[in-house]
Design a protein around this nucleic acid. Structure first.
Lengths: 109, 109
DNA sequence: GTCCCTATATATAAATA
DNA sequence: TTATTTATATATAGGGA
């Protein structure tokens, strides 16, 4: 999709990796939104940049009614331990123990 | 990206909506994976079809070590109340009350 | 549904400013 | 760096079997 064909492996040059990230992130978000609209389905997309920043798209129209995770994190740079924590909790969904959940709940609500 | 240009609104014909869903879902998954590899970032994508089926991609390499939500749901068709529940819990992340969490935890673990 | 085909729209790599 | 341009690779709409 460009002047040259690209190999599917990590782009080693930091500068072009950043440029590609920015372009493809935009493209992916756009396509996620299109899929939601065209096919009338719910789509969610989350991307953690290597800077630890969270980019998120969700087609859930009710989103605004609820406490948004995004509002708590998207403007922060997270350390990698936090990233791992969030990934486990959100993407991989290891249940927290009830005691750990109680603690989390108290810090969030 | 095809013989005709498409308007960004719900495809009303059920059959072509289904075909478009299948094609674009595949494309989106592929691009999510490419972004993760090329730019060395974590990407997660979740799609609920209108049949209530969950399709999921996550670049988190540690995934297999943990209990996967996918293994519990991706082969099932969920009623819309369940979809809404999962969307709230996962995408929008309304915290459950500790009591409700305790109940969920017991049914999951 | 479901798989192919292929003309066309779109995304984007590399160049350029 | 950060935009903008443009040539090219890729995705996919519409169609047929």
């Amino acid at each position: 999709m460009g002047r040259g064909k690209v190999q599917l492996k990590r782009i080693e040059d930091k500068s072009s990796r950043q440029v590609t990230f920015s372009k493809r992130k935009g493209g992916l978000m756009k396509k996620a939104r299109e899929l939601g609209v065209l096919c009338d389905v719910e789509v969610a997309l989350m991307i953690f940049s290597d800077q630890g920043r969270l980019y998120e798209f969700s087609s859930a129209e009710r989103k605004k009614k609820y406490l948004s995770f995004e509002s708590r994190t998207s403007r922060k740079y997270l350390p990698s331990s936090k990233i791992r924590y969030y990934l486990r909790r959100i993407f991989i969904r290891v249940p927290l123990s009830p005691a750990a959940y109680q603690y989390q709940y108290e810090t969030l609500v």
